[in-house]
Amino acid sequence: MDTMTYTTQSIWTWWIAMYLFFGGLGAATLSVSFLTDMYCRPHRKLVLWGALSGVVMLAISSAVLFGHLLHHVAVIYVLNPLVLFYQPHAWIAWGTQFILWMMVWGMLYALPYMRETPLFMRMPLVGALLQTKFVAWLSGCCLKRRRIVGWLATVNGIGTAVYTGLLIQSFPAVALWHNPGVPLLFTVSAFSTAFAYLLLLLNVFIPDENDQDIRHRYERMDVILIATELVILFSFFNYTLSGSESGYRSAKLLWNDMGWLVGFIGFGLIVPFFLELKGVIKGWGGRMPTVAAALLVLMGGYMLRHYFMYAGVYAYPW
């Protein structure tokens, strides 16, 4: 035992946490807003806000990773869709393709709504582009095949959210990461933050009395997802407490840290859980509690990934 060295890493730090957070949030936001539009009721504003902010989040996520690459030109190999045939075991290859196609299908799904919105049609360049014959024809095709386009975007969105967990799971030396719970945790967290973000949109940026049913549904879904996340985290706690020294050291790092315990578990999960639970059961007089809960969930979503990256412990036999 005394010859072993236990250490955390400084290779993938805050910037990968940002990549995972914005990747998962952006993808789940697109998926949820499109599913709402397809199966709840058509909602132009929600789709436009969801699609555009989702694409911006995915772009931020990709830019953060791209900015930290050592050899930027070589990224061409992973942008080529054929990468899935020669590197099918590499999750970054899948993730890059999911993100790329999610952005493409996401924009195509939003295209007919963009053409219906005076703001976009009046915009310099964008307006001119939207009025071209080709874009009009493309928009018509997307409208005709709305569900197919919506589902293509949604599948890529779910793929992106799951991928963020699978990526971390593929590192075998770290017990905290290399287990089947990680993709589950990151997927649940991605969708929970997406519901929180959409609640923020529906309460602050596009408030509409007619959307009460959607807000209520989102809040109920978020309560269920936060509860699921707490259960997964509890099982993580038990899993890391024994079985491997690497896992045990990760547990000590996480559960002795006030940022994780109070910041993430307390304010990022438990407080918004009760705020949203009251909203679901009895309702709130105003919007502030729901907005506060949404902001806390978003903060918690980043903190989860941040702490996860920093708490992975490698065990070296020297």
Binding site: L69, L70, A74, Y77, V78, Y86, Q87, I92, S170, F171
Partner: peptide
Amino acid sequence: TVCPTGATYKRADGIVLIDPDRCMGC
């Protein structure tokens, strides 16, 4: 297995190598 570009490869004699031109440095 995690290399997204295929820059890391294995020769038939078991040696694991990196193609620096193909590695994007993730």
